[in-house]
Design a protein around this nucleic acid. Sequence first.
DNA 1: TGTTTCGATTTTGTATACAAAAATGACAAT
DNA 2: ATTGTCATTTTTGTATACAAAATCGAAACA
Lengths: 213, 213
Amino acid sequence: MGLIETRILTDHVYETIKLMIRDGALRPGAKINKKELESQLGVSQTPINDALSRLAGQKHIEQRNRRGYFVRKYSCKELVDLFAARGAVEGMATRLAVENASDAEIEQITHFFAEVSFPLSEAAYHAYERTDREFHSLLIEYSRNAIIQEMNEQFGYIVRTATTGLVRPPDETIGEHRAIIAAIRDRNARLAGELMTEHHLRSRDVLVKDCRD
Amino acid sequence: MGLIETRILTDHVYETIKLMIRDGALRPGAKINKKELESQLGVSQTPINDALSRLAGQKHIEQRNRRGYFVRKYSCKELVDLFAARGAVEGMATRLAVENASDAEIEQITHFFAEVSFPLSEAAYHAYERTDREFHSLLIEYSRNAIIQEMNEQFGYIVRTATTGLVRPPDETIGEHRAIIAAIRDRNARLAGELMTEHHLRSRDVLVKDCRD
DNA sequence: TGTTTCGATTTTGTATACAAAAATGACAAT
DNA sequence: ATTGTCATTTTTGTATACAAAATCGAAACA
């Protein structure tokens, strides 16, 4: 690689594979071909194996005895479960954020979703998606809770790989988002947290219907 | 190393090291000596490296560039954060458990902490500790939420390694435990969940005081 | 006593080797 | 067409090798 090796090879391989999973180059359930990665990345078996073990530790991939590594595939039920878990974690994150954030940070959050008006153009729809992501990750950041942030890193990405776009349309979620923001503005930590939890649980309800049980 | 190799060596090494961390044979902050593990477990570098990478993926240990692996050491702040996170996750677990559990399972939960009376003998104190652990993990099991269960596996063990015994004395927590159980018996999912969350947040408040900030 | 220097030793990160298991695929028999 | 057999190829899990970096320790110095 570069002349100055700042990171070890394993780290590089690890992040490359992680991105390949997130961007769909490696699809859920797909077998991971080590030899291919080897020549593709120009490294030996060892860093590949290390990176794969690391990913297996994070359960992003799974090792099946004597047949190699496979990209983890989430069942419909697991996705439903994910939204309940996210509801719990982000609810608490929101509550803590309201308790800890500075006035300026609260002010900043207030501006999210301020100028959304319907009907949404194609571009505005995508902007809504982006704002949604930023809103949620900002609250997790402002929670200042290292464990919650770790949980989000571990489990938050699943939504990106396993679902496409928004679970519910903007005209259904905008009201909830604005209610959460109002509670944040009022520094009502408990209420803001509860609203966030219910927000996710409502998305969960939508996903449950899509599951063939 | 039996005649029939049912698990791969890496799995065996992984679990051995994990236990060594949980039982304190490898203390937080300690450097992990690969060569030593090699001869101790009678395997080559490779399975050791794979197991260590796996543990690093789970953040149980951390890899410092060119100086090896170290058992992760949790700061006081991180422990405080852990209890807020647990409050969120177990609160939701409790809520889901009440929604999903059968009558028999609810009945079973009702018996926890039933015959605790004060003052506690040494033995009764340890029994209380055990009941506490069982109570919490049973609720997580009965939540039937795979993601929450995974989160608990990843993060729940930290309490074992980083704290000794109970954070608060039984005579302080017994009331909270019984209130949670009462809400569960009444099938009041929301209330039971909230009480569980507050239960953990109160332990968190105790830990905050121990932190020199 | 307490530092600093510097060579010897250990450990790390990476590469390579290889037996055994699994996947593949051509061919034969239904 | 489907199924079964079995030799060939690929891949896996594990072991070993090795240059470069980090650590250690003793000697030299303050």
